[in-house]
Lab assay of single mutants.
Amino acid sequence: MATKAVCVLKGDGPVQGIINFEQKESNGPVKVWGSIKGLTEGLHGFHVHEFGDNTAGCTSAGPHFNPLSRKHGGPKDEERHVGDLGNVTADKDGVADVSIEDSVISLSGDHCIIGRTLVVHEKADDLGKGGNEESTKTGNAGSRLACGVIGIAQ
């Protein structure tokens, strides 16, 4: 089992970053940390998408990683996509320092995120509470600013 993974985020604009993942036990939580720069100040949706395909930019990554066919939600919700990591918060300089621990994603097994795409979005994720159909699919997080395929790390 891989215990570490990394993702280099890039987009068409100024947004870029490096996100690290570490899972010490196969059924334990995954620590997610790193930094994203070039964002507007505020909240930005942060999700693992189904495919590791960036051939047409971030759009070819498909929908959120959702092997259990659930509705979109927040990272602490029972009803959520596996890939729903909530929001990252950018400061006035456009930098989001990421520090998350998640017990639904994994670096092995059915919820493995390796080979899938991590995406940072234009807007805040409403965590499935926006009151419309799009909220239950995407959290109304808007366009995909930057993305990268999650790969095994040393």
Rank of each mutant, 00 (worst) to 15 (best):
D110C: 15
H72C: 03
L9V: 12
I114Q: 00
G83Y: 15
G42M: 01
S106E: 04
Q23N: 03
S143D: 11
G142T: 03
V15I: 15
A141L: 09
G94P: 00
G115D: 04
F21L: 08
T117W: 14
V104D: 08
V88E: 00
A124Q: 12
G11C: 06
E41D: 09
V82D: 02
D102Y: 04
G86E: 00
G142Y: 06
G86Q: 00
V120L: 11
N54A: 08
I150G: 00
D91L: 06
S60L: 11
C112E: 03
D77R: 08
D93E: 09
P67D: 14
D12A: 13
S106Y: 01
D93M: 10
G74A: 13
L85I: 03
C147S: 13
A90W: 02
C112P: 07
G151S: 10
S69G: 15
V120W: 01
H47A: 04
I150A: 00
D84F: 06
V95T: 13
V88N: 02
V120G: 03
N140K: 14
G42T: 01
A96P: 03
V30C: 11
A124M: 09
Q23K: 10
N66D: 13
G74M: 08
K76S: 12
G57R: 07
T55I: 09
V95M: 07
S106V: 03
E134D: 08
L39A: 01
L145E: 11
P67R: 12
P14I: 11
C147V: 10
A90V: 08
V88G: 03
A5E: 03
T55C: 11
D110L: 13
F46L: 10
K92D: 11
G11W: 02
A124H: 12
H49S: 07
E122S: 12
S99K: 14
E22T: 08
I18R: 07
T3K: 15
F46H: 02
F51A: 08
N66P: 06
H72N: 13
S108C: 11
A124F: 13
R116N: 03
N20H: 06
A141R: 08
K37V: 09
L145I: 09
T40C: 15
H121S: 13
D126L: 07
G109I: 00
A141D: 07
K92I: 09
E50V: 06
R116D: 00
D125N: 09
E78Q: 08
I19R: 00
K123E: 14
V120C: 10
E134K: 06
Q23M: 06
N20L: 03
S99V: 13
V95P: 01
K137A: 07
G130V: 11
A61R: 11
V30Y: 02
S60Q: 09
V119C: 12
T117Q: 12
G94L: 02
L43P: 13
D125M: 04
L145P: 01
V32L: 11
I105Y: 01
T40V: 12
V15H: 01
G11A: 08
V88F: 06
G17M: 01
S106P: 04
K24M: 10
D102Q: 02
K37G: 13
S103Y: 09
G148S: 01
V32Q: 01
V88D: 00
S143R: 13
A56F: 12
P67V: 13
R144V: 14
P14T: 15
V6K: 15
A153W: 07
K31P: 01
V30M: 00
I19M: 07
P63L: 10
I113A: 01
D77Y: 08
L9T: 00
L118M: 10
L107M: 04
D102F: 02
G130I: 05
R80Y: 04
G45F: 02
G38R: 05
G74K: 02
G34C: 03
V149C: 08
E79H: 14
S103N: 09
H111C: 11
I36T: 00
H44M: 00
E50M: 03
V119D: 10
G142N: 04
E133W: 14
R70H: 13
H121G: 14
E78H: 04
D126P: 15
L118I: 04
V32G: 02
V88P: 00
D12G: 10
S99L: 10
L85K: 00
V88M: 07
H49I: 14
V88K: 01
L127K: 12
S26V: 15
V149M: 09
V32E: 04
K10I: 09
S143W: 07
E79Y: 15
T136L: 15
E122H: 07
T138A: 05
S99R: 09
L127F: 14
V120D: 01
L118S: 00
K24D: 08
F46P: 01
T136M: 10
H111L: 08
L43Q: 05
G109W: 00
V32F: 06
R80I: 04
G109E: 01
D110P: 14
G17A: 01
E78M: 09
E50K: 07
G52W: 15
K71T: 06
V149I: 12
G131V: 12
L39Q: 05
I100Y: 08
